[in-house]
Amino acid sequence: MHCEDESFNVSETTHDGAIATSEPPRSPDDGLSPAELAAKYGLTASGARPSLVEYVRRLWARRHFILAFSRAKLVAQYSQAKLGQLWQVATPLLNAAVYFFVFGVLLGGREGVPGGRENYVPFLVTGVFVFTFTQTSVLSGVRSISGNLGLVRALHFPRAALPISFSLQQLQQLLYSMIVLAVILLGFGHFPDWTWLLVAPILAMQLLFNTGLAMVMARLGSKTPDLAQLMPFVMRTWMYASGVMFSLEYMLRERAGAPEWLVSVAQANPAAVYMDLMRFALIDGYTVSDLPPYGWALAVGWAVLIGFGGFVFFWKAEERYGRG
């Protein structure tokens, strides 16, 4: 199996001989303290946190692992189901159907949708898919360390690979949903135009935002696993407050009579911003005037703030994940 190396065998014999006497005879290293010995041979204490630049470099070196891990998770998700990967598309479709039935038919949330009542279904489905992207990123992020302790305790890699990987998994999930969405849009007579191209930058910004948020949640969740129990309720509250199944502006201003500042605050929340931009990009009759003020600036701002802030926040505790 292995070609024996002559010189190596010689040195190995001396190794063995030296060990037999348990203390190496006449070694120049005698009398050195462990710390001095370590310094002499360039040994380093393990388990220290790398610098931010070094951390990014290591993360980049692991990019293939991050991608492979996210794809593997995605495939494994439905591998036991008979319909298999078809569920990637069927799950979001069923979700949208339920919301349409509850909010569109039973509760009559169709009022006030930009472009008129017939826009409700595309409006709703776009909202559901875009919000689900953020929602699932947060929910998987909160478990990304605490649910993968085996991995964290066995292998060395920048821990940020986990929340990033989970966010990428959600992005791939969303791309399946986008196929469904495209079919629905066509069915409701919204044909592709140049604004559809805006989907790519919007998704990029939302991905950055989601990943940052997932990293914040990952660090908090690693310290307090109970957060995983709490987050579904937080996310549901966030969903109702962001206008996924109704027009936020119309509901707050016309129905609830809320003060102007409250409308602005609600519309500036990142989930609402990304949803509104996506609707603007995809739905005819959803015009610039329906966008919240400074919509694009807010989208970039949230992405940069949470994306980079979350990354630094996560990195600060790098050496403590999976311990204790």
Partner: peptide, 17 residues
């Protein structure tokens, strides 16, 4: 106490992944 190592020791723990 302290542990000094040459490079990065790896645990044969690939099962976790």
């Amino acid at each position: 106490g302290k542990v000094y190592t040459d490079g990065q020791p790896s645990l044969l723990g690939v099962n976790a992944a």
